[in-house]
């Protein structure tokens, strides 16, 4: 029962969120080659330790988040808005 601190809504139970996937994939542009897309969609690191992943605050503000989580302990180190401009605005207005 981990809790995630949503930048907008505060600390909430993980049941309000839905897991997205690996947050460190650099998705290629739509016109990239099949091989590039194959690697982006299908190849994943199986990280033992800290990883950045995407979650959506589905039953809250619906923001997509970048969550840095330890896969061994579920400890969460940071939560940011995935939308870089929004994250910047949040930080500036803090």
């Amino acid at each position: 029962m981990i809790q995630i601190s949503c930048p907008f809504c505060g600390k909430r139970d993980h049941s309000e969120f839905s897991y997205g996937g690996d947050g460190q994939i650099n998705y290629p542009s739509l016109d990239a080659s099949q091989e590039t897309w194959h690697d982006a969609v299908f190849l994943r690191e199986n990280i033992y330790g800290r990883q950045i992943e995407t979650w959506q605050h589905l039953y809250g503000c619906r923001s997509w988040l970048l969550v840095e989580r330890d896969t061994r302990t579920h400890e969460i180190f940071s939560v940011k808005l995935a939308h870089a401009d929004w994250q910047k605005m949040m930080e500036e207005n803090r």
């Binding site: 997205g20 998705y27 959506q56 589905l58 939308h83 870089a84 929004w86």
Partner: peptide, 13 residues
Amino acid sequence: MARLEELLQTRWP
């Protein structure tokens, strides 16, 4: 809906 939000917030901000 979730997919559209994902694309707009993470891929094509």
